[in-house]
Design a protein around this nucleic acid. Structure first.
Length: 431
RNA sequence: UCCGCAGUAGCUCAAUGGCGGAGCAUUCGGCUGUUAACCGAAGGGUUGUAGGUUCGAAUCCUACCUGCGGAGCCA
């Protein structure tokens, strides 16, 4: 008989099925042995009743330890006492392996203990739910762009120089060509691709060697970066709004059970509907000053500042037109105020901070050259990028969204490390 | 890089400078409805490392190691 998955059990009531999986938990009470089996799609209580199965099979079931791998068959019964409403009345059982004593018990554990055993921690219900939501978000992101005529064009992971010259990069030797750096953004390459395809996005890993030690930082994370020829700042904000509304909607629609497992209050997620509030940097500063936060115009917002600003709103907020001095060289200046860059950040609600950063790009060759000089960046490294402004330059815009920060927000997590299957942080590169 | 906190049984934690403890896990026994079951019993310790103070240190002091939280940094 072929395998039935636990999430399909409701189609098999009163018939005999075969489950293949692992013992998630077990407890016995005299002549009854309860096994909770998981198979990757869900968990199901399986009941081994001595008078029904006989002495031999019952004793065999008592030897099962947590995470032992088994194949069982039995009749599916509706039972309100079982978690999920269904249980299997076990008729036969094949043990593949009796697992050694499993380190992760159903009781609480410290974060270091769990992180050391991330390869096993993935099996627990909470981690399972998070990675399912991560998967749904990834699918939704790709569906969103694919459905709007975007072409996926990824940038390289090895790059010859810093994209912005600001953040610290991981460095490696690259044959006879000297040093190579792991990418911190595909944006510049996405701009080139947008001049070829109009609407493009890249989606891949990103590396930052900053010694950041906070709940919002990983050294390796995934970023999705759309770039659109002829889009101005407002078009860019429209795109970001559409995008967030769509991906959050998809999780609400398709992953409600997982959100429930995480005990996520979906109130804020339900609110992720256009239009989002759009405020300028100046207005954001006013919010801080009104709350009597010591903040000087011209500085970038810290994590706490972002939290305070986002708490003013019931959905993501777009902050636009930052001081150009604190933004990257490639951002276009506001034609109405040269001190401002046509940048946007999107701050997630509930203190989750910046999940999107983007801008309208500088499309003027001369201004871009000036800016590269002013930032003391190596001009040769940007020759190809400057070509984009020599041969049919057009206004264009794009943004980058951090996948893990988005997952963290949607799932309502305390720390970003749970959003990555194998997170890389300043103090951890294993397992 | 800086500030703060922590490190004791497999895990989570307690122990006023005076005999090293509990719950869970494990093993054994009991129970026909458990949901982190319950009841009874047993085994389980170089108190992160190295020094120091003291009659006596898990406890106080110094250094180091490891981790955690935060700051800085960070599209």
């Amino acid at each position: 008989m072929s395998q039935t998955y636990i999430n399909e059990l409701s189609n098999h009531i009163d018939s005999t099925v075969v489950l293949k999986g692992w013992v998630y938990n077990s407890t016995n009470k005299g002549k009854l042995n309860f096994l909770v089996i998981r198979d990757g799609t869900g968990i199901c209580q399986c009941v081994v009743f001595k008078p029904n199965v006989g002495e031999e099979l019952f004793q065999k079931s008592l030897t099962l330890t947590q995470e032992s791998s088994i194949i069982i068959s039995g009749k599916v019964k509706e039972d309100k006492r079982a978690p999920g409403g269904f249980e299997i009345d076990v008729a036969s059982m094949e043990i593949i392996q009796i697992a050694l004593e499993y380190p992760i018990s159903p009781k609480e554990h410290g974060i270091e203990f769990l992180a050391e055993r991330r390869h096993l921690w993935l099996r627990s219900a909470r981690q399972h739910a998070i990675l399912r939501i991560r998967h749904e978000l990834i699918r939704a992101m790709r569906d969103f762009f694919d459905g709007r005529g975007f072409t996926l064009i990824d940038g390289p992971i090895f790059t010859p120089a810093a994209c912005e010259g600001t953040s610290t990069l991981f460095e490696t030797e690259y044959f006879d060509l000297g040093k190579a750096y792991l990418t911190q953004s595909s944006q510049l390459y996405a701009e080139a691709a947008a001049m070829a395809h109009g609407k493009v996005y890249s989606f891949g890993p990103t590396f930052r060697a900053e010694k950041s030690k906070t709940r919002r930082h990983l050294t390796e994370f995934w970023m999705i970066e759309p770039e659109v020829a002829f889009n101005d700042l407002n078009d860019n904000m429209d795109l970001a709004e559409d995008f967030l509304e769509y991906i959050v909607g998809r999780v609400l629609k398709n992953k409600s059970a997982e959100l429930q497992t995480l005990e996520r209050d979906t109130k804020f997620l339900q609110n992720v509907k256009r239009p989002f509030p759009r405020i300028s940097y100046d207005e954001a500063v006013k919010i801080l000053l009104k709350k009597e936060i010591a903040f000087e115009w011209g500085n970038d917002f810290g994590g706490t500042d972002e939290t305070i600003i986002s708490q003013e709103f019931d959905r993501p907020v777009l902050v636009h037109r930052y001081p150009s001095a604190i933004k990257a060289f490639y951002m276009k200046r506001d034609p109405e105020n040269d001190k401002l860059a046509l940048a946007i950040d999107v701050l997630a609600p509930e203190g989750y901070g910046e999940i999107i950063g983007g801008s309208q790009r500088e499309d003027d060759l001369t201004k871009l050259e000036e800016r590269i000089k002013k930032h003391k960046l190596p001009m040769e490294a940007f020759n190809w990028y400057l070509d984009l402004r020599k041969y049919g330059t057009v206004p264009h815009s794009g943004f980058g969204l951090g996948l893990e920060r988005t997952v963290s927000w949607v799932c309502g997590l305390e720390h970003i490390r749970e959003t990555s299957p194998f997170p890389r942080m300043i103090n951890r590169i294993t397992p």
